[in-house]
Every structure is written in structure tokens, then in C-alpha cells.
Design a protein around this nucleic acid. Structure first.
Lengths: 165, 165
DNA sequence: CATTCTAACTTGACGCTTCAACCCACACTC
DNA sequence: GAGTGTGGGTTGAAGCGTCAAGTTAGAATG
């Protein structure tokens, strides 16, 4: 038999409602800005940006999917579109034919460069500017904790891997 | 001519990456739990829960859409499905025929009651348990600030409306 | 009381994401 | 080196959300 559930109290309830709203609305705001200004989705931007930050503008598909927080299947469909648009090329990894490498083209890089300034500006406006420095710091810690609860196998970037026992 | 964009520094970048990941992964975790245990989406649950919390298990469609953070169009499609499943009924508001009232049925209420315990448990596990009390408090404040930045016309619940000048 | 306006809601089509099935390259085993 | 396993990637179909267009009820205007 199950225990009586630990219902949320009034405080927690408000916090949860507010977080739930943010989950939806922040996403759609970022998507709307990117769609309006650049005609691409926020996810497509993340893919292009992920490539532009790689040393040779090249990444494995699986690596890219992780960066953009999407499934491999979703990425595959999206990269097919981006390839049709001439912003990305795909080729099998010469070192290991199981991997596929996605490479940013010149035109693709130009697109990211064009989109980036308005995007950071929007992130600043919606996320950082409304918060105090202390809140920004706490936000990082909060999101890292929640991310670990959601996916314990996840390794936060820039955090040294815990040494094996 | 545009100013040089205020790029994110290393700190901010990590915070933003972590928040972006949470935006996606928390949502999909909640969705996955609800789909697995109850065969419905998290959004559908929110709709049913929104009705179950109303005095007479009845709400206007537009009110419901706001509660569940979805468009009216999306809600209309979803309620059609919930109606087919026998969990919700729709009728025009007798007081004002422009509104549509959605009413939770007995079966619909039973469904929410069945789904609710595991849902709160999941919310606790993923959101509240990993955080300190102080972080929980700060989280509310952070999400409210971001929500206001995203949509300035939004009125946070349980916050007295600012008196007109 | 006719006209116009506004806002709530619905609908269908289109586009995107998911899901399951599949293919393929390499590793591992015997 | 044949057989099996594993994991990366792709594909097509099915389902869901969005968008634009349409419908309707009531308010506002004359």
C-alpha cells in the first residue's frame, strides 16, 4: 500500500507553478525571437552554434545532439534540413565509419554570426538582467542540482570528474 | 549601427547552458513519468488537475489555457481528446454564450486522483528534494523575475495587484 | 435595430518531434 | 573469419502543436 503523498504546501505550490510557467514561456520566447529575426528555430540555432564553437567547425552527430539537448533522431531530421539550406555538410568519420561528422559551411557560419548578437541580447534581457549577481550564482547551483536529479549520469561541464574510489 | 554585443562570460555561459538543459530535460522527465504511469501527457494532466481544483470542477477554456500555460488552440485540441475519453465535457456558458465551460466528469476526477500522488512525488524528487530551503525560496523569486521579463503583463498569483497611480 | 468591432473558441493543414524499426561499422568471441 | 553484439545514425509514420482562417456571441456605435 502506498503512503499518503507529501503534497506541496502553499509556498512550494507557488514555486512550482512559477517554475512550470518559466519552463514553457522562456523557451517559447527564445524560439519566437529566433524565428522572427532569423527564420530558424532555437534548436536549429543551437546546432549551428554548437558547430561554430568546435575547433574545425566539425562535430560528431551524437556529440551535437548532447550539446543541443535533443535526441539523435531529432538532430538527424534537423541536420537534413540544414544541409538542404547549405549550412551544414555531413560525412562519415574517416577514422571510424560508425560516426557521422557534421561540418559547418561558410554560409552556415555566416548565419550563426548574424544570429548570435540578438540571441545573447535576448538571453541577457530575459535571464540575467532581471536577476541580482547572487541570484545568478544560485541559479547555476539550482539548475545543476535539478539536472543531476533528472539525469544522474550527466556530467556537468567544467566540473572535474569525481575520482574513482 | 549595432553595439558590440555583451557576450556571456565563462560563469554566465555555464549558468545558461545548465538552465537550457534543465528547460528541456525537466519537462521531458515529467512528461515521461506521466506517459509511462498514466498514458497521458503532462499537459493533459495539467488540464485535468486545473479542473479538479476548481470549485465545481468547471472552468472556462481560456482560464484553463492560462493555468496550463498553453494556447487556446492547443487546449481545444486536447480537450477534444479528453472529451472522447469521457473525462471532460464541454458546454457553452449559459451566462455568456461566447465562453465555453469545460467540466470534469466523475471518471476524469478519478483519473486525476489516480495520477496525482506519483506526480507530486516526481516533482519533489526532481525539484524540491535536491534543493536547500534557501535555494527553494530563491528559485521562486528567480522564476518570478524571469517570468515578468518574458511577459510583463503577467500577474503572479498571490501577489497583490499594484495600485493604479 | 443595423453595422461594426472584439474576443472566445474551433477547425484543418502544415511542420516538427517522437517512436520503432532498420542499416551499418566495428568489436568481441569462438 | 563466421557469428554475434553493441552502439551510432537514419528513416517513415504517427501524433502533437502552431498558425491562419473561420464562426459565433455579445458590446459598442450610429
Amino acid at each position: 500500500m502506498a503512503h499518503e503523498p507529501r503534497w506541496l504546501d502553499a509556498q512550494e505550490r507557488q514555486t512550482w507553478l512559477s517554475l512550470g510557467a518559466m519552463l514553457i514561456n522562456l523557451q517559447s520566447a527564445l524560439d519566437a525571437q529566433m524565428q522572427r529575426d532569423q527564420g530558424i528555430s532555437h534548436f536549429e540555432y543551437q546546432v549551428l552554434a554548437g558547430l561554430s564553437e568546435a575547433a574545425d567547425h566539425t562535430r560528431r552527430m551524437s556529440e551535437l545532439a548532447g550539446l543541443a539537448n535533443g535526441s539523435l533522431s531529432r538532430l538527424s531530421h534537423v541536420v537534413k534540413r540544414l544541409e538542404r539550406l547549405g549550412w551544414v555538410r555531413r560525412l562519415p568519420d574517416p577514422d571510424d565509419g560508425r560516426y557521422t561528422l557534421a561540418v559547418l559551411t561558410e554560409e552556415g557560419f555566416a548565419k550563426v554570426a548574424e544570429a548570435a548578437p540578438a540571441h545573447v541580447e535576448e538571453v541577457r534581457r530575459l535571464v540575467f538582467d532581471p536577476l541580482t549577481r547572487a541570484q545568478q550564482t544560485t541559479l547555476r547551483s539550482i539548475t545543476e542540482r535539478i539536472n543531476r536529479a533528472v539525469d544522474p549520469d550527466r556530467d556537468e561541464p567544467d566540473r572535474p570528474p569525481r575520482p574513482p574510489q
